[in-house]
Nucleic acid binder design. Structure first.
Lengths: 192, 192
DNA sequence: AGAGATTGTTGACATTTGTCAATAATTTAT
DNA sequence: ATAAATTATTGACAAATGTCAACAATCTCT
């Protein structure tokens, strides 16, 4: 486990002060998994059993409507946690799919292990709260961009806040993350 | 304090099991405030000093762009917590304003008292985490509605999930909460 | 109760964005 | 390396929504 869990350890010790034994207690609950490109980790209507920590690669949480159109709820890259959050948290069927859009190296923990850590490890609740705070703030910013900005402004914001993502992912996916069509994004790019 | 804090107590005991003395310790940090209609509680560019709990009435967290256009980030009604979350959490200048759109009865706690409770009261961290989880899930649903639905669908969803809000607030505010113009909303309503 | 302010409605038109389709470019898998 | 699949671009057009303006309806405050 040594090497596979170092990023997770760093993530946690960045948030809280914690003894090595307790940190190990947390890390022991996380198992390692490598995925291929486009591998589906969760289908809609399933209850999401895991929350993932991305060591390497990229996860995409997306919705699929009746017409087969896809909408990207979240993109999760290195050193971030990600899951179908409502489904995992409430243990109810997911509206979203999870896939690894790149070959990825992941850690994952089951719902029951995740829950047990709240009682077993002092500090885990704080670490989780801080993570949630950050994720919630990010989602507020996203809502704001969706209600106040047009397609072009949102694209430029994304380039500014997450330039790597834009370079790294097919623009098809960037487009539906921004809530616009592939064609509109293509036109935005050519017009400056 | 008896009566003014009963709703808050109920909110907390709904989430966690807690002894009366500890619950009192929490409640003691919350002060009471009555506001008039349209009273501004926070201006943009100020660091938000408080998080509010709404006993009665309604808070609105909104953005104002250079052209004077308003965008409603959140509406907070009875028995919910609300604040300019990024500003309060990170103690940085707010992009948003907070106003009470109705005459309201509020409880509020300062940032430092809020922080101190994490260390003083076992259970407060859990209560906060659970609240955050719920708020984060709500914001994810909102993002989804913004990227997957058109104006009409979003309006119908709001009617379904929050019928009271739609009746109670001026449709101007409902419109910019939905991210659409007042005129578009007016047309949606007449066309069914 | 009534004046003034705010909010809501409607029409005409502009703008943005989406959709469909054809083709080009790129990537992937063998 | 090459064929097949995927992704990106572009054009023409349609649909959704925004903007501006005029007016009506409704609140609100004294």
């Amino acid at each position: 486990m040594s090497d596979t869990h170092t990023q997770l350890k760093k993530f946690i010790t960045n948030q809280i002060t914690i003894e090595d034994e307790l940190l190990a207690l947390i890390c022991n609950k996380f198992r390692y998994k490598a995925t291929r490109r486009n591998q589906i980790l969760l289908h809609a209507d399933e209850v999401c059993p895991y929350i993932y920590f991305v060591n390497q690669g990229c996860l995409r949480v997306y919705l699929l409507d009746a017409a087969g159109k896809e909408f990207t709820r979240f993109l999760i890259t290195e050193n971030r946690f990600g899951t179908a959050f409502p489904s995992f948290t409430l243990q109810e069927p997911s509206l979203a799919y999870i896939e690894s859009i790149e070959p990825s190296q992941l850690l994952y923990i089951s719902y029951s292990d995740y829950q047990s850590l709240f009682d077993i490890v002092p500090g885990w609740e704080r670490s989780t709260r801080l993570g949630l705070q950050a994720d919630y703030i990010a989602s507020i910013k996203r809502i704001e961009s969706l209600i106040t900005m047009d397609a072009k402004q949102r694209y430029q914001l994304l380039i500014k806040t997450n330039p790597t993502l834009v370079q790294r992912l097919p623009s098809k996916i960037i487009a539906d993350y921004l809530g616009i069509s592939q064609e509109t994004l293509s036109r935005l790019k050519s017009k400056k």
